[in-house]
């Protein structure tokens, strides 16, 4: 099947010499829920900008559903719905007019445009505001409207650039549910975010971008398993050489009454480990199951936190 997005050898050098992208290769399959994860300034928005035609390519190529975004820009852009990070809107028109105009730019017939606009405004709780101008909306409403408008032409590839930045918890969950639903309907979703938990929760595949380069690409589970940070933390009273001998075969450390064991799938090994310790007469006080996060993956790969 033709990939939803295929990026080959993508370089972007801005005027002034800043290299935002330094040779990106990336494939996003159709129907995937894909996360592009990285700290601010890593190159996420530039990658999206190139894909959507907002940023010129210095070198390399980007294809959307097989269409080159430069030479076949009409076909490529027809398939994309973008909700940009910044909340900037045409201030002359009402929400309704903006929905209809946006659909029109994509060639959607008026009748279908009206139907889609009505449905989306309803789904995003904006029907009552349809005749007001965007400047009269709250920040959360603007975000909802931006996402609703990006879907008015029924795009196959939905790109959300930091859609939950600065929104409250309730709206964040509403957007997550909506994006999951879109994905189930068969739309390819590309989500850029610097919220680790968002990528872990939603994306079936994640690429981590840093300093203009893709430094990791895989499912969250694969990436987290790769750094071997899963394990158990156990508080033990009465630790002895005998207890240590009982843990032969495990990668562990014991310090200040706390036992740290690195182990894959710690839930499955928990009973065995506790039994071995208890069998030596030591007392187990509490047990914590540790799982690696994508943040750990980022730290492992770059030596720093994502929000540094």
């Amino acid at each position: 099947m033709t990939p939803a997005v295929e990026i080959k050898g993508l370089y972007k050098r801005y005027a002034g010499g800043v290299e935002a992208l330094k040779g990106i290769d990336l494939v996003v399959g159709q129907g995937e829920f894909f996360g592009l994860l990285g700290p601010n300034g890593a190159g996420k928005t530039t990658t999206i900008g190139v894909t959507t035609g907002l940023v010129r390519i210095t070198e390399g190529s980007v294809r959307v559903m097989g269409y080159d975004v430069v030479s076949q820009f009409r076909q490529a852009r027809q398939l994309i719905g973008l909700a940009a990070q910044e909340l900037n809107f045409d201030w002359f028109f009402s929400l309704w007019d903006l929905m209809i105009l946006q659909a029109g730019y994509y060639g959607v017939p008026a009748k279908i445009a009206r139907k889609n606009a009505e449905r989306l405004l309803e789904e995003f709780g904006l029907s009552a505001k349809r005749d007001v101008k965007v400047r009269a909306l709250s920040g959360g409403m603007k975000r909802r409207f931006q996402i609703a408008r990006s879907l008015v032409h029924e795009p196959q590839l939905v790109i959300m650039d930091e859609p939950t930045a600065g929104v409250d918890v309730e709206l964040r969950h509403m957007l997550w549910d909506y994006l999951r639903r879109l994905n189930k309907e068969g739309r390819t979703i590309i989500l850029t975010t610097h919220y680790i938990e968002e990528a872990e929760l939603l994306c079936e595949r994640v690429a981590i971008i840093d300093n203009g380069r893709i430094i990791a690409d895989g499912s969250p589970a694969q990436l987290m398993a790769g750094i071997k940070r899963d394990g158990l933390s156990i508080t033990v009273e009465g630790w002895s050489d005998q207890a240590a001998a009982g843990l032969d075969g495990y990668d562990y450390t014991f310090k200040d009454g706390r036992l740290q064991i690195k182990v894959v799938q710690p839930e499955r090994r928990l009973a065995d480990i506790v039994t071995r310790i208890a069998g030596t007469g030591a007392v187990v006080h509490d047990v914590t199951i540790d799982h690696a996060s994508l943040e750990d993956v980022f730290i492992e790969l770059t030596g720093r936190r994502m929000d540094d």
Partner: peptide, 18 residues
């Protein structure tokens, strides 16, 4: 200029319009 400075020109630039 308004579209440029208010950054809603992007809404047009991402469409299939040449």
């Amino acid at each position: 200029f308004q579209a440029k400075i208010m950054q809603f020109l992007d809404d047009i630039l991402i469409t299939p319009l040449s």
